[in-house]
Amino acid sequence: MVRPKKNRIVKFNPDVVYFKPRGIPIFDLEEVSLTIDEREAIRLADLLGLSHEDAGREMGVSRATFGRIVQRARKIVADALITGKAIKVEGGHYNIIEATRKFICCACDHGWEEPFGTGRTKGCPSCKSENIQRVKGKLVKM
């Protein structure tokens, strides 16, 4: 009997779920499927540059399991890029945790939130200062 798959933690789920080569009608394309947890693995390892150990911790799986997920995801993406296939993102074993990152500007005390998965913040949206700090918990103005 096969062991049931443990749900992975996904912290970023963009609205984009389909990619296709430009200039080729969709009905002429082969399609490959990338699961939502595989896309999360690529985001953590390749976009954010996390180690397999740290990324596995973020997804709630072991380092070895994360390595297998990201290896499978990279193979799917490489196949689509090299052979001109469309990528459909769907399914998988995951729980989405909608969360935001909270920041406060040390220069003007402006507080704001940004969604996870959007990369490093560019600075304070109010005064453009790069002297910012990430805050845990509620944003409280003093």
Rank of each mutant, 00 (worst) to 15 (best):
M1Y: 07
M1P: 01
V2N: 12
K6E: 14
K6H: 11
R8I: 00
V10A: 07
V10M: 08
K11P: 02
F12T: 03
N13Y: 14
N13Q: 13
V17W: 10
Y18A: 07
K20A: 15
I26G: 05
D28Q: 14
E30S: 13
E30Q: 13
E31N: 01
V32D: 09
L34F: 10
I36M: 12
E40Y: 06
I42S: 01
A45I: 09
D46S: 13
L48N: 10
S51M: 05
E53D: 10
E53Q: 12
D54P: 05
A55R: 07
A55W: 07
G56D: 08
E58F: 08
M59W: 10
M59L: 08
S62A: 06
R63I: 02
R63T: 14
A64E: 14
A64C: 00
R68V: 03
I69N: 06
V70K: 01
R74L: 06
K85Q: 10
I87H: 04
V89I: 15
V89L: 03
N95L: 08
N95I: 09
A99S: 14
I104D: 03
C106L: 15
C106M: 14
C106W: 03
A107L: 06
C108M: 07
D109H: 13
H110Q: 05
G111S: 14
E113N: 06
E114M: 15
E114H: 08
F116L: 11
G117E: 02
R120D: 05
P125D: 08
S126A: 15
S129G: 06
E130G: 13
N131Q: 11
Q133M: 13
R134S: 11
G137I: 02
L139M: 08
V140P: 00
V140K: 14
V140Y: 10
V140Q: 11
M142W: 10
